[in-house]
Design a protein around this nucleic acid. Sequence first.
DNA 1: GGGGGTTGTGAACCCCCTGTTACCGAGGCA
DNA 2: TGCCTCGGTAACAGGGGGTTCACAACCCCC
Lengths: 291, 291
Amino acid sequence: MAASQPPVRLPATMHSIAAVTPDRPLGDSNSQGARSAPLRLAVIDGDSGFLHVLDKRVCARGWQQRVFPGAVPVEELVALRLGALVIDLFVLGASGWAYLEQVGTALPALPTIVCSGPSTVAQRVRALRLGADDWLAKPCHPEELIARIEAIVRRGRVAAPPAERPALEAGELSIRSDQFQAFVGTRSLDLTRREFELIRLLAGNAGHVLERETIYQRVWGYAMAHGDRSVDVFVRKLRQKLERASPQWRYIHTHFGVGYRFAPERVDAGEAPSMAGELTAGELTAEHLLQ
Amino acid sequence: MAASQPPVRLPATMHSIAAVTPDRPLGDSNSQGARSAPLRLAVIDGDSGFLHVLDKRVCARGWQQRVFPGAVPVEELVALRLGALVIDLFVLGASGWAYLEQVGTALPALPTIVCSGPSTVAQRVRALRLGADDWLAKPCHPEELIARIEAIVRRGRVAAPPAERPALEAGELSIRSDQFQAFVGTRSLDLTRREFELIRLLAGNAGHVLERETIYQRVWGYAMAHGDRSVDVFVRKLRQKLERASPQWRYIHTHFGVGYRFAPERVDAGEAPSMAGELTAGELTAEHLLQ
DNA sequence: GGGGGTTGTGAACCCCCTGTTACCGAGGCA
DNA sequence: TGCCTCGGTAACAGGGGGTTCACAACCCCC
């Protein structure tokens, strides 16, 4: 652990929190619990009752479902671009095992779940060894089947590359999460990590006034102590760097007694040093500035 | 984004691989795909009969097993470098759900199986949604449990297929996944396995800043313990070898408080030791560096 | 216009982050 | 068994960046 540091250490140190990404811009992967991406599902089964109930749940989730009464040629499966495959092994009879192996070999990346009636341990083990990801006994609840499919898909995804985060554009600014940095044209603002987290939060809520406590909570990761001026200090640092890189624009506006609001505004040449707190309706809902 | 992501190595796999091919640049050590590599298993359970039977099977497979009577702090799990975790949720009582969620959040790459007594559909679904990969009802046959563990581990592995990967070209560097080695011209950098995995990850995401936690997660395969300096040390080793083989170029840039970014840059003769944080758009979207 | 609270600004302090080196244990190999 | 390589940990030095403080400037309200 920490090298030559004195013994006393607060548990929730700033670093660990900051490192854990206090503010997920959203639309991010962590929503797995709630919604998952639309999934294309193929079901090889003949049980119409089961299929009907399953279809309802699948549709409710926004997924798509194709039903097949028997074995589907592997090439066809490939063409379907499936997200997952559900098989009742026993509708395929004795050839089911060979088929399962075939699918497992040809499409190892395809999540495959066997959903069949009464079975023995040996059968289940065999299926799993042949490439199936799971075996769920019928009768089963469709929600459990869906949850199991999601679990398998999720497992495959944690190994996949992280989703790409788009850049935020505002005025002359380009805020790139993959760089932990903001740019004007090609020039970096040379923001520190905290400065970047702060501007990302503000720009991510452009047009909205954010209270200091909120800002602190989301950038620092824990509650702001009374009298803490950190937010003000960092806003100043940000303004300084913004002013230097993009002198024709003002980005961060102070709301006295409240907090700060991000909204890119072109500076009028002959502008008097206007009040920061003065607003117009246009500024407030400045949607035209960002998306 | 980067198509050619390095695979996420599960701990057990990784160790065995690293151990098997310490220096040998390689000849297709990927044969491990079929046979399951030794797996380090943790079981949170109190059922001595179950544990005994399971232990026999686990040992027969050449795996290792650690048993815990109750919840294990996540940091401890990290330190154990597990390949999979088996939990009897009900021995943890009401706190079991929170614990499961905690594990799922901190160690998303860790295959987790709940193996508990009678349960409801709702309980199983809940566990799966919280991050469990599977739920197997007790009493169960240990062979099925093992087969299910293997299926999950396999799923995590196929997500990053060892398919033929083209060589990555960057500056004077040529990173050949089929050789597990990097070259300058024809001269090998003589990278170790870990060093190679690291540079492959970085170069595969050229132009993007990767956080230490991300790097660790994807190269080492499990969550980074607080205070771990392994990434830094390996970056230094890499820089040393890169400097020796390609002195006219700088490849790895530090982003203070964040992590590292790979971007080949020719060293100017009279160059002052410039800041790593300084970027140009050219570097950012450095597509010309790869592909 | 004046007073009290709020915000801007600059600088000092010091913690912690990173680079770097050395050391140790594990495992392969002879 | 002994040597060697490799991975991981510990320790230290140096410097960047976060926090805090003091004071000035400012805003709002009475």
